[in-house]
Simulated scan of single mutants.
Amino acid sequence: MTSRLTARELTLAYEDRTVVHELDLAIPDGRVTVIVGPNACGKSTTLRALGRLLKPAGGSVLLDGEELAKLPTKRIARSVGLLPQTPVAPEAITVADLVSRGRQPHQAWWKQWSEEDERAVTDAMERTDVAALADRPVDALSGGQRQRVWIAMALAQETELLLLDEPTTYLDISHQVEVLDLVRRLNRLRGRTVVLVLHDLNQAARYADHLVAMKAGRVVAEGPPEKIVTEELVRDVFGLRSVVVPDPVTGSPLVVPGAPWHAGRETEEEAAEAGASAV
Rank of each mutant, 00 (worst) to 15 (best):
P56I: 06
R31D: 06
V249R: 06
T193R: 03
E118R: 15
L82E: 06
P167C: 07
T46A: 13
M153K: 10
M214Q: 05
D29V: 01
V88G: 02
H106D: 01
A221S: 14
R184F: 00
Y170Q: 11
A205W: 09
V197C: 02
L171Q: 11
R265L: 04
V179I: 14
V249N: 00
R52V: 04
I76Y: 01
M153E: 14
T193M: 10
R17A: 15
D117C: 12
T94K: 11
V32D: 05
S277N: 08
D209A: 04
A272F: 12
M153R: 14
D117Q: 11
A140P: 14
L133N: 07
L63C: 09
R241P: 00
C41F: 08
T73H: 02
L180N: 13
E270P: 01
R184P: 03
V194N: 11
G144T: 10
K111A: 15
T267N: 00
A204H: 11
R206T: 14
A77H: 01
G65R: 05
A213L: 15
R17W: 05
T230N: 04
A131T: 05
H106C: 05
G217W: 09
L233Y: 05
A132I: 08
L186G: 05
D123Y: 11
L201M: 11
E160K: 04
P137L: 03
L82G: 06
E270G: 03
R136E: 08
R101W: 08
C41M: 03
V32T: 13
P257D: 08
L82Q: 00
A156T: 06
E22N: 12
R101P: 01
M1S: 15
H210T: 12
E118D: 15
H199P: 07
T122N: 13
T128S: 02
E9K: 15
R148L: 07
P248H: 08
A57D: 14
L164D: 12
G58V: 08
P38Y: 00
P56V: 02
L161P: 00
V212W: 09
M214P: 09
T2D: 13
P38Q: 01
G191S: 03
R206S: 09
Q145L: 10
E222I: 02
E222C: 04
M1E: 14
